[in-house]
Computed example of a mutant assay.
Amino acid sequence: MSWQELAADHATREAPCESVGLLVVIKGRERYRPCKNISTEPRDTFVIDPEDWASAEDEGHITAVIHSHPQTPPEPSREDQQACDALGLPWHIYSVLSGSWGVCRPQHQRLSLIGRVWSWIYADCWTLTRDFYALHGIELPDWQRPRTFEDFMRAPMFGDCWPLAGFRELEPDEQLSYGDALLFDMHGTGPDHVGVYLGDMEVLHHLKGRLSSRDLYGAFLQSSTVQRLRHCSVSTLETVAIG
């Protein structure tokens, strides 16, 4: 069977949930490797089990992501294109409803920092923060996240990561400046959210279930702030367009 036939069969068996797999080149041949969808909302989206991804990398070279749309045409959603761009791999989409295929390919233009659809690992608050600093020539590490957002919330990691990413904590008498990072405790579990101060009492951040946005750094966000950080490599950052 071809990889298309194997993937279509996998999608049919997984319906009404989304299936996901990887196209891997092994000894010069394309092979379909089905993966586990560990999303908490598998009928609407997918998250590849990191162990399946690692196994595929051990076997060969990953060339594409393949997933299904159980009840809709094989047209890439906004989230599909966004994650496709983030990974830099083609995404083949199989519609169980119509039995047809579609594909989206990475678009190389810079992805706007405003209006992104939230997706764990591919487009979350840390991804947004990394991309903001990348615009200023600062490369932050892409931490190995837990498998799911729910796993992360049980043991938030931001409190341990920021010193290793090159940040220092601001002194109480230091004023916030453009580009300073803010760690928030949004759920009473410790630092579980990060944003960037933009000046003029505005913050850039990306909450789960919302689009990335530029919001007022008002009373709620201020009261949720647990640490104010500045990257050690610069004293000031030049303002750049983020929209």
Rank of each mutant, 00 (worst) to 15 (best):
His92Thr: 00
Pro156Asn: 00
Trp120Phe: 09
His108Arg: 14
His205Thr: 03
Arg154Ile: 03
Leu182Ala: 05
Asp180Asn: 08
Phe149Ser: 09
Pro156Ala: 11
Asp131Pro: 12
Ser177Pro: 08
Asp124Trp: 08
Ala123Arg: 00
Pro163Glu: 10
Val194Pro: 13
Val117Trp: 14
Leu207Glu: 13
Ala86Trp: 02
Asp200Val: 00
Gln107Ser: 13
Arg154Met: 09
Arg105Gly: 10
Val203Trp: 12
Gly102Asp: 05
Phe158Ala: 08
Gln107Thr: 07
Gly188Trp: 06
Phe158Ile: 00
Lys208Asn: 12
Val203Asp: 00
Tyr94Pro: 09
Arg105Glu: 15
Pro191His: 11
Ala123Val: 06
Gln144Lys: 10
Asp200Gly: 08
Ser119Leu: 14
Pro191Asp: 00
Ile121Phe: 07
Leu113Ser: 04
Ile138Tyr: 07
Tyr122Thr: 14
Ala123Cys: 13
Leu183Asp: 04
Leu140Asn: 06
Gly209Gln: 00
Trp101Ser: 00
His136Gly: 01
Gly115Ala: 07
Arg154His: 13
Asp200Met: 07
Ser119Lys: 12
Ala134Asp: 03
Arg110Pro: 12
Ser119Asn: 14
Gln109Asp: 11
Glu202Thr: 15
Ala181Asp: 08
Leu198Asp: 05
Asp142Tyr: 09
Leu204Val: 11
Leu207Pro: 03
Asp173Cys: 14
Gly195Cys: 04
Ile93Phe: 01
Gly137Lys: 02
Phe152Glu: 11
Leu97Arg: 13
Leu207Ala: 02
Lys208Cys: 07
Arg130Tyr: 01
His187Asn: 15
His193Trp: 09
Arg105Tyr: 02
Ile93Tyr: 06
Leu183Arg: 08
Glu169Cys: 13
Ser95Asn: 02
Thr148Val: 05
Pro141Asn: 04
Met201Ser: 14
Pro106Trp: 05
Asp173Gln: 14
Val194Phe: 02
His92Ala: 08
Cys104Val: 01
Leu111Lys: 15
Glu171Leu: 15
Leu111Ala: 14
Phe167Ser: 10
Gly88Phe: 07
Gly179Lys: 06
Asp180Trp: 05
Leu135Asp: 09
Ile138Lys: 08
Met153Glu: 13
